[in-house]
Structures are given as structure tokens and as C-alpha cells.
Amino acid sequence: MNRSFIRQDQFLYLKIALGLCCISIFLYVVDDPVGPPSGNSWLGYTLGTVGTLIIVWLVWFGVRKRQYTGTRYSLTRWLSAHVYMGTALLVIGTLHCGFQFDDNIHTMAYILMVLTILSGMIGVYYYLTVPGLISANIKNSNAQQLHETIDQIDRKALEIARQIDSHVHEMMAYTIHTTLKERRHPSKKVLMDMLRVGETIKEASKACYCSLTKEESIAPSDTPVSDLKQKDPSDPHMRLSAIIIDLSFNRSPGEKLQQLLDLINEKATCIHKLHLDRVYNRRLKIWLMFHVPLSLATLIALVIHIVSVFYY
């Protein structure tokens, strides 16, 4: 974390932003404008100008991020400054308007600015927490490798399923086929199905293990088999688990079945990881869906604000 944009240059930009805030607050306290504090005093104009420059500069980050050549300072520095100056804007903007809020475009512009900054803060929070989560979720691996692992599991599972029973094989093939397409972007439904299958299978494997070792017998009625069949008979995943559980109780389950269960379990774990990976990766991008449009809206609102203020 020593090199993170938060700590860039020993918090240089935090210090600059704090300094700016302190100066602004000091001036605001010291200044005795005509009438209540507002944008309509020399301090108001000054803070407004500073704020405008900061906003334009902050929005420029979107351009700077894509300028890959001829750049003098690293993007890390820019981001660090972006984050701290954006936060300082909260203070400067509020002091600029002198806590005057009303139902007009000026307050709307202010609200847009605050929303932008808040979305940025969410972004910072995500940027600081999510990368670690991604790494912790897919340990020492990557999504590509997980997909490959699942491919391998699928292949093995099909092979084993074929050796167990043609029904099991059919269902297995069908579930694999239906999840194949969605796996790249696991939809919630497919994932939930897989997770449910995983849970069911876990139960089943327990039962399976018991019947294998003959330690304890669990009556089929105790299992969610009937439940599953009724729940969603058209759902191939559910049917697959039903068949498997059925098999594990009604026929001799054997080693193959146990292997298949393990594989399905493993696949469910992988899919869960993939899902989390997708969720985390989306989290890293989704806040930009708010931050960028809001910041541009703020820019437009700012222009309208300035035009209207200077025209009147």
C-alpha cells in the first residue's frame, strides 16, 4: 500500500488539498461580506473561480487518463491529486455558496457536484478494497484459468457420468451445455442454480458417504429429493441433482458417483468464484457509470450556473 495513489508522494496532494481548505475556511471566517456570505462577494468569486478551475481540471482527468504519450507526471500522481482535490472541492464549493441552498439551478449544480464527489468517494473505497478481494477470491490464479479448470471438470464429469448411467450423462451434458454459454458472464440465475446444486450435492455426498461406509443410513425422505423434483421440474440442474441423489440412495452409489459429486461440488465452487470475480470486477467499473455522467452533468450545470450568474 506504500505506493498507492492515496499515499502518493507522502500524501503531498492531501496536504495541498488540506491547505487549500484551511485557507478557504480561514478566509471565509475572516471575510465580512456585504450581506450574508454567498458567491456574490470577492471571496465568493474567488472560491467560485478556484472551484471552477478545479472542476474543469478534475474532468480533464478523463482526457489525461487516455493520453499515453508526452506525459510528464504519472497517472498515479494525477489520480492522487484528483481524489484529494475533488474532496477539497466539497469544502470550497460549500463555502462558495455560503450555505445558501434553495430550489434553483445553483443548488442543483451544487447537488450534482456533491453527488459526483460522493460517487468518487465510493470509487476510491472500491479501488482500495476490491483489488484485494479479487486477489483473495481467485488465489494465485485468474479467471481464464478458472474457466479452464471448469472445462476440465466438465470433461471429467461427463466421462464419469457416462460410466455411471446414461441418464446421468444426459443430464450432465445438458447442464454443462446450458451453463457453457453463460459461464463467461455467469448470470445470477445460472449461478444460483449451480450453487443450489452444489448445496444439494453436498447433502447428497454426505448421504452417499454414509451409505458407502454404512455407518448410518439416512432415509431418502430426509433428503430434498422430492422437494427438488417438485420445485422446478424443468430446471435441468435441479433434475440432475435429483437424479444423482436418487441414485445415491436407491442403487449402489459406488466410487464413480462420489467422484461425480466431488466434481460438481468443485465446479460449483469455481463458478461461485467466477461469479464473485465478475461482481468484484463490475464493482470496479460500475461506479464510473455514475461518476462520469454525474461529473459531466456537473460541468454542464456549472456552465449554466456561471452563465446565469454573470448575465444577471
Partner: peptide, 22 residues
């Protein structure tokens, strides 16, 4: 939406702002 394209959303926000505030 899936690709998380920001541009259309940004345009929407900008135009909405223009509409509402101007």
C-alpha cells in the same frame, strides 16, 4: 449495459441536465 458503456449514460446525463437546468 453489459459492457458498462459510460458514454451513452453520460450523454443522457448531460442532455438531462441541459433539459432540466436550462
Amino acid at each position: 449495459l453489459h459492457q458498462l458503456h459510460v458514454r451513452p449514460v453520460a450523454w443522457f446525463a448531460v442532455l438531462l441536465t441541459l433539459l432540466v437546468l436550462f
